[in-house]
């Protein structure tokens, strides 16, 4: 490997793994990762809510970690493994977390939901039996204007062991 240098107006080939599939697309250096996922790779389930790293709607898993995709660039994702909300369900069945969101009415308009699901997925892997305060702390990196968050907290706790401690 040697240093990568891509001119400002070059469309550079980016190869990565998204939701378990090898994907390639092209991006100029300034293309945000969220735009790349949505418009270049055709995965619009990742939503863009603020483009300044505050609202969390665009959160995806990059190499297993929940991160904003609006504050990084497509070229940075070369060779990474990304999971988006499109990659969560088990075949045609909602996974446990998704089902918990439905069962606890943890979404209304659903626009912020994709990002929250991705954060919660990583978080529960790190903290399998969180307290309510830990869940709220993790959720504070997201803005939801519909739910008041309570139902989201309940949904996440419901899939965490015995409902959290």
């Amino acid at each position: 490997m040697s240093m990568v240098r891509v001119k400002a107006d070059d469309r550079h080939r980016v190869s990565l793994t998204v939701n378990g599939r090898r994907r390639t697309g092209h991006a100029e250096p300034r293309m945000q990762l969220c735009d790349f996922l949505r418009h270049e790779l055709g995965l619009p389930g990742t939503h863009v809510g603020c483009e300044h790293g505050v609202c969390g709607a665009c959160t995806v898993l990059i190499d297993g970690r929940a991160q904003r995709s609006c504050t990084q660039f497509a070229l940075q994702a070369e060779g990474t493994e990304i999971t988006t909300v499109e990659g969560l369900a088990e075949g045609e069945t909602l996974n446990r977390l998704q089902a918990a969101f439905r069962d606890h009415h943890a979404l209304q308009c659903g626009f912020c939901t994709a990002g929250i699901l991705m954060s919660a997925t990583h978080f529960l892997r790190e903290v399998p039996a969180p307290s309510e305060a830990e869940v709220r702390d993790m959720l504070s990196g997201h803005i939801c204007r519909c739910t008041g968050y309570d139902s989201i907290v309940r949904a996440i706790l419901s899939v965490a062991g015995e409902g959290g401690t």
Binding site: M1, S2, M3, V4, R5, V6, K7, A8, D9, H12, E28, P29, R30, Q32, E51, H52, F73, L75, Q76
Partner: peptide
């Protein structure tokens, strides 16, 4: 709300950076 065009450099070492 998109950045200006810029050249992207990914050095391999701190010295290169």
């Amino acid at each position: 709300m998109k950045p200006v065009a810029f050249e992207y450099c990914r050095p391999e070492t701190a010295a290169e950076a």
